[in-house]
Amino acid sequence: MEKAELLSVQNLSVALSGKHILQDVSFTLNEGDWLMLIGPNGAGKSTLINAVSQAIPYSGNIRILGKDSKQMKSRSLARAIGVLNQNHYVGYGFTVEEVIRLGLYSHREGFFSLRAPSKSAENSAFGKAKYTSFDPDQAVFDAAGKTGLTELLSHSILTLSGGELQRTFLAQLFVQDPQILILDEPANHLDLIYQQQIFSLVKEWQSRPDRAVLSVVHDLSLAKKYGSRALLLRNGQTAALGTVSEVMSPELLESVYSMDVYAWMQDLYGRWSR
């Protein structure tokens, strides 16, 4: 069966103050994909993510779930795409629960009425067909449970560690339950154990029908382990696009990173044999 196309980006270019940050980047994201965006610092990975999530002006054509993204309303865009940002600077002492609960925003029409998110009946509890009707409190509680935040629900976000904060925003995304998850350095600030947890949670989330993930990772080992496809960027242009094993070949990586990546990785991880 042909996999559904969730996101299509064509000839995407971004210029900031006359300087080309991205030039003519095209790719598609199909159901079940986990596309890894890799490349050295300044290659345009974060800019690409910002353009896809409609945060910055761009030229080119981005279609999300078959619709022209520039025509989409904010709430329907948020039901299609959710973004986990890299940095969280928080100023006020909201509770963890209040932050997670904001994930319900896009599922509300207008001011008050709460509508079940699309496909919630079969999907909201990670495919466990748990809810007959969508229960927002249960969704918040489940998301907190999955990310290990149940104990912290009533805590102020000002008192959290970087990792706890990152998990709070991930829980918010799980409640929002968009079809495309965009992650900018998801393992940033995370202890190894939570890094592993987050990646397996996202993996589990992505293996459900009609879901796809687009993520920036610096750690190439993580990209190799979890990615299904990869887009390698160099100076704002596509250096390679394809399956992870195609793109992450020794020759391509060496030409883009200007170093022997494979030798370094073997040097790093070869020391771990018991």
Binding site: S53, S74, Y89, V90, Y92, Y105, F169, Q172, Q176
Partner: peptide, 26 residues
């Protein structure tokens, strides 16, 4: 007063507000 929830999102961060579906400009 009816914009309270959007203001909650803004005071957590504009990027986050956009991500959860707030029409930031409007």
């Amino acid at each position: 007063l009816l914009t309270a929830e959007e203001l909650n999102a803004f005071s957590i961060g504009e990027e986050n507000a956009r991500s959860i579906g707030v029409n930031v400009r409007a």
